[in-house]
């Protein structure tokens, strides 16, 4: 339990001359809810893709759930869950069929799939709709279901890439309750968001600007570092500092 859930040292990704992620170093403890913030194009998605083993780093090291993403991406993939910013369940399959598909992909037995499906669907009160096509569910429910599917194989670390995009405030709140419940069970959560009020819910957060980490710490620490009173101002100050000529 002493090793961090995510640890990177000078993690870098270049595309030709462009440096998308520039030597980021961070450490996320187990069971932590870590906010991964930054403007569009700041390099968040590239960084996450390296951490989940979809993109090889150009430089630096990263360890996720105890496995090196460069040398052992297969182990990383087995131990993590991922919910992408685009809604990524199959519309034309039912709730149950989606859950079963991901269960078999992660090598769960039939009995395991059945018991975890019952548990997860109860948690989001979707049990009655288990034979409904996902297409027919409201967006908020779809997204909660996507989170449950990402947690189906009990990953050590779960990556949520803008999980609350486009949903109403009540559903967002409900979603964050699920995130807390997940972290309380010991699962580490790395979440990206555009909503700065959500960032306040995180245990710690980092703000990426132009491929670098411009600020990192608890929400209070970050506000103090920049010397402003809200995360909104933190964000604007940091991104403007770079945008100025």
């Amino acid at each position: 339990m002493t090793t961090p859930a995510i640890e990177t040292t000078n993690l870098t990704r270049r595309f030709g001359d462009f440096v998308a992620v520039d030597a980021i170093t961070l450490s996320v403890a187990r069971g932590e809810v870590f906010g991964f913030l930054g403007a569009n194009g700041a390099g968040k998605t590239t960084a996450i893709r390296m951490l989940i083993g979809l993109l090889a780093p150009s430089d630096g090291e990263a360890t996720v759930a105890g496995a090196n993403v460069r040398t052992d991406p297969a182990t990383v993939r087995r131990r993590i869950g991922y919910m992408s910013q685009r809604f990524s369940l199959y519309d034309d399959l039912t709730v149950r069929e989606n859950v079963e598909l991901y269960g078999t992909i992660y090598g769960l037995s039939r009995a395991e799939i059945r018991s975890r499906m019952t548990e997860l669907l109860e948690r989001i009160q979707l049990t009655a709709s288990r034979d409904t096509l996902v297409r027919q569910l409201p967006l908020g429910w779809k997204q909660q279901l996507a989170l449950m599917v990402a947690l189906l194989h009990r990953p050590e670390v779960v990556f949520l890439d803008e999980p609350t995009g486009g949903v109403d405030p009540i559903t967002r709140r409900r979603f964050w309750e699920l995130i807390y419940a997940t972290a309380a069970e010991g699962t580490t959560v790395l979440v990206t968001t555009h909503y700065l009020d959500e960032a306040e819910y995180c245990d710690r957060l980092s703000i990426m600007v132009d491929g670098r980490i411009a600020a990192m710490g608890t929400p209070a620490e970050v506000r103090a570092q920049v010397g402003v009173s809200t995360l909104d101002e933190v964000f604007l100050t940091l991104t403007r500092a770079v945008a100025a000529p």
């Binding site: 992408s84 685009r86 990524s88 992909i105």
Partner: peptide, 13 residues
């Protein structure tokens, strides 16, 4: 296009 391929690729398969 829909992003579901990413989910399959993040899996151990």
């Amino acid at each position: 296009e829909r992003g579901t391929m990413e989910l399959l690729l993040v899996s151990p398969l």
